[in-house]
Amino acid sequence: MRARLKIALVLCFAAAAAGSAWTSAARARPAAEPAYVVLLRLRWDLYAQWKETGRWPSDSAANAALDGHVRYWDEQRRAGRAILAGGMKGDYWDNAALIVFRAASQAEADSVVRQDPAVRAHVFQSQVRGFDVSWVGAASPPAR
């Protein structure tokens, strides 16, 4: 009888400790924040010229818009709005990029993207979608 009581107490204690650790971990993890992702595709004529010749097209208006795009999203990053950005690799996807950024609503997210100089100049086509940020990794990879 005593052995069963000891086993029951040990199992209860273990379950309570496991439950406590689980709820502590859940509290430590921040809640998902409202964010959006913009998918960007380069205008077809620019992409085709670049792929056919291997050189970036000499289009001063497009280049000015792309310079503005870089400055605009750098400002968004410094303001804490932009979370992640990058271009996709591969023959089919190398004219596509994405930016994950914070916004309080779909309307605000659409407004943020419409202010991008490359979107305004129709150098990029854009689609904005809600995006649940579950976690963000370290700012830089650990040293090897």
Rank of each mutant, 00 (worst) to 15 (best):
W22R: 15
A18Q: 03
A16D: 00
R114C: 09
G80R: 06
A109C: 00
A16E: 03
A82D: 10
A62D: 06
W93R: 10
L98K: 01
E75P: 00
D91A: 13
Y72P: 07
E52H: 09
A82C: 04
K89L: 15
D116E: 02
F13S: 13
A62W: 08
D74H: 14
L42H: 04
D59E: 12
V112Q: 02
A15I: 08
A15Q: 00
Q76M: 07
D45L: 07
L42D: 07
G87E: 09
R114Y: 01
R41N: 06
R102M: 05
S24Y: 10
L46T: 01
P30M: 06
L84S: 13
W50T: 12
T23E: 13
L39T: 14
A85T: 15
A103N: 01
A16H: 02
P30W: 09
R81L: 04
E108T: 12
A85P: 06
A25G: 11
V100S: 03
R29I: 14
C12Q: 05
T53E: 10
G54E: 12
W44A: 15
G54A: 09
A21Y: 14
A28S: 02
D110E: 14
V113F: 05
H69F: 04
S20Y: 14
G68A: 09
E52F: 07
T53H: 13
D45K: 11
D67H: 12
V100T: 06
A64F: 02
A26M: 08
W44N: 12
A14M: 06
A14I: 03
L46C: 05
E52Q: 13
A21N: 05
P57M: 01
D91S: 11
A103L: 04
T53F: 08
A118C: 01
S111A: 15
A25S: 12
A28I: 00
L98H: 10
S111W: 05
R55K: 14
R114S: 13
D116Q: 03
R29V: 15
T23C: 10
G86L: 02
D94N: 10
H69Y: 03
Q49D: 03
